[in-house]
Amino acid sequence: MSKIITTEDKNRQAKLKAFDRLLTIMDELRENCPWDKKQTIESLRHLTIEETYELSDAILDNDPQEVKKELGDIILHMVFYARIASEKDDFDIADVLNAICDKLIHRHPHIYGDIKAADEEVVKQNWEKIKLKEKGNRSVLGGVPKSLPALVKAMRIQEKARGVGFDWEAKEQVWEKVEEEMTEFKSEFNIENGREINKGKAQSEFGDLLFSLINYARFIDINPEEALERTNKKFIKRFQYLESESKKDGKQLTEMSLEEMDEYWEKAKKL
């Protein structure tokens, strides 16, 4: 009796066929294209970083078609890295895929083992504990990449500390810390009193304030990196409106008063 091929089977076959097509094209490009033949893992690095930020932009813009396009670019890079590594007999794409499968199975003992995990928080705690054993880090924070942007790094530091139980118990406690840091900063570095500011100390205290705000954002389920980027985009949109509309009226920004600029800014806020 022949097996009945379901829609799910056909979908899986289509996905495997598409991935096989990409592998074939990658092989052809690596062997025949002058640019692709020259690339190394090192030369691709900065391009991969750029593609990752482009994906981030597409996600923030809520543009599914752009997300699809950027995901394709990133998958291409992953296949490219694996192809280059295979030429040196370091590893190939099968090794990459099997390694991530093995890691996922190992880090989800509540699915593939006999560990119980009642909620997401327990899953994350187990993940960090397993990861710490795997990598042999001397510190829970050892896995945080040094080159991460500071705001993202602060988030990861806090998440990893929480993974081993080092965290505030309630958001109210975190907000008290925010207010405490804000009060300290304001009282010590209040420009109204005319005292010269110790820049080094001010920078340190401002960092403490930002760190506490990031902590609070985490407690109320706000991604501070995403929140700040959305504000950046909002500011850019409004400022560009100010530029374009004032230009239409024959005005130059450098010759306008702040009050004149504010008129355009208020109009931009209503768009």
Rank of each mutant, 00 (worst) to 15 (best):
L228W: 14
D208M: 04
F206L: 12
M182Q: 10
K199L: 15
A227M: 06
L210K: 08
L213A: 10
F219V: 13
L210Y: 03
R230Y: 12
N193D: 15
T231R: 03
E179H: 04
I220V: 13
K160V: 01
E179L: 06
K177H: 08
F211Y: 14
Q203K: 05
K237M: 12
W175G: 02
E192G: 06
R238K: 10
N232W: 02
P145W: 00
R195L: 14
E192N: 14
E180W: 12
V152H: 04
R156M: 08
A217E: 04
W175D: 05
M155F: 08
W168I: 05
G142Y: 01
E188T: 09
L151A: 00
N223A: 03
M155I: 07
S187K: 09
E226W: 11
Q240L: 14
G163D: 04
E181G: 08
M155R: 06
E243W: 04
A202M: 13
E184N: 11
S212H: 03
T231A: 15
L148R: 00
K160A: 03
K201T: 13
Q158M: 02
K186A: 15
E196V: 02
E180T: 03
K201M: 14
Y241F: 14
K234P: 14
N223E: 13
K201D: 15
Q240F: 09
K233Y: 09
F219M: 10
L210R: 08
E180M: 05
R195A: 13
N232P: 05
K199P: 08
F185I: 07
A154R: 00
F189K: 13
M182E: 13
F166S: 02
R195C: 10
S147Q: 01
F239A: 08
F219C: 03
K171V: 04
I220Y: 02
V178P: 06
W175A: 07
N215W: 07
F211M: 12
D221K: 12
G163I: 00
A227C: 06
Q173H: 15
I191G: 05
E243F: 03
F219N: 13
I236E: 12
I214M: 02
F189L: 11
E188G: 09
E184Q: 13
G194Y: 09
L213F: 13
P145C: 01
E225T: 12
L151H: 00
F206N: 04
K233G: 10
N193L: 10
K237D: 14
G165K: 00
F219E: 06
K153A: 00
I191V: 11
Q203F: 12
V144P: 03
S246N: 00
I236M: 13
I214V: 15
N223F: 01
S244M: 13
Q173D: 11
E188H: 10
R156H: 06
T231Y: 10
I157Q: 00
K160H: 03
T231L: 14
L151I: 01
K160L: 01
S212V: 01
F211D: 15
K177M: 10
I222H: 03
L242R: 07
K177Y: 02
A170I: 06
I236C: 08
R238S: 03
V164G: 07
D167V: 06
A202Y: 11
P149L: 03
V144E: 13
L209D: 06
N198Y: 11
V178C: 12
W175I: 05
R218S: 13
T183F: 10
R218G: 14
I197Q: 14
N198H: 09
R230C: 09
R238D: 07
K146I: 10
